[in-house]
Simulated assay, not measured.
Amino acid sequence: MTASLDISLHQHIAIRALRSYLRAVGDELGVGLESATIDHDTPVSAYLALDTRLPHCPDRDVALLWDEEHGWAIAKETHSGEDLLVLAYLGGPTITPSPKRVARFVNALYCDDRTVGLPNPPAIRAGGSPEELAAQLLAYRPTPTVAEPNAERLFQP
């Protein structure tokens, strides 16, 4: 994780908004922020470790990757410590799809549905402007709902 004590106000707002968004996605997937890291460099990116493995690669840890240009991707860890191997990109019109949409993406890949996602990184937006990133992240607001007593998350491995 890239850490900096000299973060501009707008960058700080974007990082706070990203943490909030990651928390919502993690809640939907059953993982906490302790499983996440954020890289403050441009393009801003995040890593969210998942607590499950995919059936077609049971010996590899799996993570969600997010960045301000391409949105979400799912990747598997390597044994050699090299970069993660991206399996698919979620794609779509926004870098901040709903946590339920991200969970459906993960669930489909968990069910070995290789028809979901994109093989190449989609160009959703150009990175670099902390103000625009903060605005897009702050535009994501979870819809308030009344919690059901035994409501289950969408992602159920």
Rank of each mutant, 00 (worst) to 15 (best):
S35F: 03
E152P: 00
T115Q: 13
L87Y: 07
D41R: 15
T52Q: 11
H12G: 14
L118F: 03
E77P: 00
F155Q: 09
A14D: 02
C57F: 06
V31S: 04
L64C: 08
I13D: 08
H70V: 08
L22Y: 11
P55R: 04
I124V: 10
S80C: 11
A36G: 07
V86R: 12
L50H: 06
D112T: 14
E148P: 00
R101C: 03
E148D: 13
I13N: 10
S20P: 00
Y140A: 05
N107L: 15
I13H: 10
S4Q: 10
H70S: 15
S8A: 10
V31P: 07
A73M: 08
E69N: 09
L22E: 09
T145W: 04
H12A: 15
A46T: 04
Q156W: 06
C111I: 06
A75I: 07
A88C: 06
K76T: 14
A123W: 01
T143G: 03
G117Y: 00
A63E: 11
I95Q: 01
H10G: 02
R60W: 00
G32E: 09
D51A: 15
E68M: 02
I74H: 10
S20C: 08
Y21D: 06
D113I: 12
Q156S: 14
V44W: 00
L109I: 13
S98L: 05
A73C: 12
R141K: 15
P130T: 00
D6R: 12
A135Q: 08
R60G: 02
E152M: 11
P43Y: 03
A17F: 00
T145K: 14
A88R: 15
D41E: 13
